[in-house]
Design a binder for these strands. Structure first.
Length: 118
DNA sequence: CAACTGACCGACG
DNA sequence: ACGTCGGCCAGTT
């Protein structure tokens, strides 16, 4: 085997995995950075998940990044959209109520991959 | 090429 | 109860 050719079996980056999980979030439900990180085995990787969401626009396929909020149900990523309200509007279009940049009934709408995909 | 930065979260004092 | 710090990854300057 040549040292230059044979590379890691799965060049699948962490970002790639995050995007894939994000696409699994059902319409009308929301998940969190920490939950996704934990599901992928990166307990301290919540931050990285956030970075992955920011890089979501570079992904090949559409990533419903608006369904990912922080652990408080707060729309932390709203400032990264075309307009500061684009994220909220996208959520409301799915039947999710948002007040004060916060998901209403977040606890009920919370979709945890570790639980749902178990 | 090396350093900086950026959608977070939990632990500790 | 509040402020601070460490841990994680990849793209850009």
């Amino acid at each position: 085997m040549k040292p230059t050719d044979q590379n890691p079996p799965e060049p699948r980056n962490f970002f790639q995995d995050v995007h894939e999980v994000a696409r699994l979030i059902p319409r009308g439900r929301v998940s969190t950075y920490g939950a996704i990180a934990h599901y992928l085995g990166a307990r301290h990787g919540a931050r990285t998940v956030g970075y992955a969401m920011m890089a979501a626009h570079t992904a090949d396929q559409f990533v419903p990044a608006h369904r990912v909020v922080n652990r408080l149900g707060h729309l932390t990523g709203r400032l990264h959209y075309a307009t500061p309200f684009a994220m909220q509007e996208a959520l409301e279009a799915e039947g999710i109520r948002v007040e004060e940049d916060r998901v209403v009934d977040f606890a009920k709408l919370f979709w945890d991959p570790s639980t749902e995909l178990a």
